[in-house]
């Protein structure tokens, strides 16, 4: 079905009108949701992922807690109406578990877990819409949700998919392109340039891998800029609210809020 779609035409345009290295539209919403400590909603084109973060809090079961650091738990829920064909995936589904494991492994070394011994940080990922790049969108959203929750990270984690069409590499694949092209997902730390996760499910010529890694790393830096902008805007709003606060009311102890904002500030640097 998808083999009839021209991945890259002679003019250098892809099936959705983008150029080779052009990313899809990104929108970030960091407004609080429910009772979560931090939440983020990110869209990469038509892919939409929402992440809620709870913690650090007491571990749900005492057996899970570790005496010298916090444990990170990840749950992924794929909405049954997120794809064209309705498909209900349960919690035990292999695909879901694999996605959750990749996210956990990406963030375990980044979160400064040693600051919170015997506690738990829960990350709940909701996939609202799928159009390729599920794992990178989830990772980017999780980074933002962790930041809004005020959990100290050593760096942002930004992820991107990179595919190869004959000899040219493409960034940020849609589901059509993902089905047809060999692609790898790279999660990198934009400040240090280190890579925390590389996954690939298809075959790719060894010569192409280095190029892919390089380009995905570049894309990560762009994403970092966008994400930082969103986080800074949110922090600015909080700081403004803090300045306003004494004029409005002194009741209802603002001390908790002050603490939260200070943590935000530290993280931005």
């Amino acid at each position: 079905m998808s083999s009839r779609v021209e991945i890259l035409n002679d003019g250098g345009y892809r099936s959705d009108g983008r150029r080779q290295y052009e990313l899809r539209d990104i929108s970030i919403d960091l407004s609080p949701r429910g009772t979560a400590d931090g939440s983020a909603l990110i869209t990469h084109g038509l892919t939409e992922v929402m992440v809620d973060v709870f913690g650090p809090k007491e571990a749900k079961s005492r057996g899970q807690s570790v005496h010298d650091r916090a444990t990170v738990s990840v749950e992924v829920g794929i909405m049954p109406f997120s794809t064209g064909e309705r498909r209900k995936r349960n919690r035990g589904d292999k695909r879901v578990l694999e996605l959750a494991a990749s996210i956990r492994q990406t963030f375990e070394p980044i979160i400064q877990t040693s600051l919170y011994p015997r506690s738990e940080i829960s990350i709940f990922v909701h996939i609202l819409q799928q159009d390729g790049g599920l794992l990178p969108a989830s990772i980017n959203a999780t980074t933002l949700a962790l930041l809004t929750a005020g959990i100290p990270l050593t760096d942002y984690v930004t992820a991107m998919t990179c595919g190869v069409h004959s000899t040219t590499s493409l960034l940020d694949l849609t589901i059509l392109e993902e089905n047809d092209l060999p692609h790898l997902t790279v999660a990198s730390l934009p400040r240090t340039g280190k890579v925390t996760l590389v996954t690939m499910e298809t075959r790719l010529h060894a010569e192409r891998v280095t190029e892919c890694l390089k380009i995905a790393g570049e894309a990560g830096k762009i994403l970092h800029k966008e994400m930082k902008k969103a986080v800074e805007a949110r922090t600015q709003k909080l700081a403004q609210a803090m300045e306003m606060a004494p004029k409005v009311a002194v009741v209802g102890g603002g001390s908790g809020g002050v603490g939260d904002v200070e943590m935000e500030d530290e993280m931005d640097t």
Binding site: S31, P32, R33, G34, T35, A36, L46, M79, F81, S82, T83, G84, L128, Q129
Partner: peptide
Amino acid sequence: APLANGSARINIGKNPEEGAGGTEIL
């Protein structure tokens, strides 16, 4: 939900200042 035949999102009791809280159902 653009891929569904019909969809709705409801929130009861969202906090107007913070934007958090409330029962939310999709």
